[in-house]
């Protein structure tokens, strides 16, 4: 599955990074960077956790 970021929605809360630091991080300007976009079975759970915690639903799995 792929993690999809709806960038205009992202408010840079970074809650997703806290849930899945292995997949994404906020850069120095506070822009979210997806380090890994395509997730395999092992990374699916952290990806789900990151998607779930975002209070503005800027992330989804497709």
């Amino acid at each position: 599955m792929k993690i999809v970021l709806d960038r205009p929605r992202c408010e840079g809360h970074g809650l997703c990074e806290e849930a899945a630091p292995q997949l994404m991080h906020l850069d120095d300007d506070g822009e979210l960077v997806l380090d890994i976009e395509t997730v395999d079975d092992v990374l699916l759970e952290p990806a789900k956790a990151a998607v779930r915690v975002c209070p503005v639903a800027a992330l989804r799995l497709a």
Partner: peptide, 23 residues
């Protein structure tokens, strides 16, 4: 009004920063 990763904000809250360098 400052975008900052939450893990970083948490680290700042936990211990007084030794160097308050913005970078």
């Amino acid at each position: 009004n400052k975008r900052i990763p939450i893990p970083k904000l948490r680290r700042l809250s936990e211990a007084a920063p030794e160097v308050a360098s913005p970078a």
